[in-house]
């Protein structure tokens, strides 16, 4: 019996060693799979913007020409860009988008930081229930909400106005941002507020001097989210805005550059690319802070 056990042990042992020996090949395999899927994903996600960029450099004749490889530009031209940037209506869309997004991000962050602080730290009757309620409202899609909201916005006399959009966009951003901030605030050790309380801080000072600086990564994440949602919103402006002077970029481009069945493809692509620029810049700029914040976020002692 002992001999049998011994031989079994040896077998087991060799099994372990053979596995250990294959560790590097397993790692190589994992790396290959990772690279392959990442490259595939990159191609899928980058193909549309690249095609947009290529198309935006073509004249209408070249776009309409079905001969040849559509991924190549034969006569590059900047005419689509100059036409757009010379068009006051397009600049108006840009300005509208900036005004709306700026105000929405501001409103969202003020509401969600205050709400999250109260829900995460001030234990009061129903705070748990409210926190869950805030999240549930996020689960209702805007495609369901825009009809009743049309009534409300109409009742307020804000139809066909960027102010109506500034009012309704926070319904998309506030719940999720509040939820992010609740999570961040909850991760701050309780002793930190207690230390601040003893040091003489009131609730507002605790929020502004301790919680907001410590939760900066969370605030930036929420800001990025609010910016992206607000910049890219499509359903609400489609429903609530009718004249070009009140339109944000998203619907301005599709409604004004498509005339009946005439598509100004070159300008549409150039416009879409220009419209995508601010989020890219915001991400690139804030991501540095975001990552710096993450690595510096030594909340634990």
């Amino acid at each position: 019996m002992s001999a049998a056990t011994a031989s079994k042990d040896v077998a087991k042992g060799s099994g372990i060693y053979s596995k250990a020996g294959s560790l590097s090949s397993e790692r190589r395999w994992a790396l290959w799979t990772a690279y392959a899927s990442l490259i595939l994903a990159t191609i899928i996600f980058l193909a549309p913007p690249v095609y947009m960029f290529i198309t935006s450099l073509k004249g209408s004749a070249e776009i309409a020409n079905m001969q040849g490889n559509p991924w190549l530009v034969r006569n590059p031209t900047a005419e689509n860009y100059t036409a757009l940037l010379g068009n006051t209506m397009f600049l108006r869309f840009f300005l509208n988008s900036f005004i709306i997004t700026g105000l929405v991000v501001l409103i969202t962050m003020v509401i969600s930081v205050l709400a999250a602080f109260a829900l995460a730290r001030m234990r009061f009757f129903g705070s748990q229930f409210l926190a869950t309620g805030v999240f549930l409202t996020y689960l209702v899609p805007d495609t369901l909400l825009f009809i009743p909201l049309y009534q409300i916005v109409g009742g307020l006399g804000l139809l066909n106005s960027i102010w109506g959009l500034v009012l309704v966009y926070p319904t998309l951003t506030v719940p999720f941002c509040t939820w992010i901030m609740i999570g961040y605030f909850a991760s701050i050790p309780k002793e930190l507020d207690e230390a601040a309380l003893i040091d003489g801080a009131n609730w507002m000072q605790m929020l502004t001097k301790i919680f907001i600086p410590v939760a900066m990564p969370g605030i930036i994440a929420a800001t990025i989210f609010a910016f992206t949602v607000s910049w890219a919103a499509f359903v609400y402006p489609t429903a609530f805005v009718t004249t070009p002077d009140q339109m944000p970029l998203t619907i301005g481009i599709v409604s004004q550059l498509v005339r009946a069945d005439t598509f100004a493809w070159g300008q549409i692509m150039a416009g879409a690319l220009l419209a995508a620029l601010p989020p890219v810049v915001i991400y690139a700029f804030l991501m540095d802070y975001y990552i710096a914040g993450l690595t510096a976020g030594a909340t634990k002692g």
């Binding site: 002793e191 207690e194 410590v214 900066m216 002692g301």
Partner: peptide, 20 residues
């Protein structure tokens, strides 16, 4: 009387230093 008006100071187990 709230903690800030009791004129006390407290040292915590996990230090509770303000990280920023």
């Amino acid at each position: 009387i709230p903690p800030r008006d009791r004129d006390i100071a407290m040292v915590f187990q996990n230090y509770a230093l303000y990280p920023h």
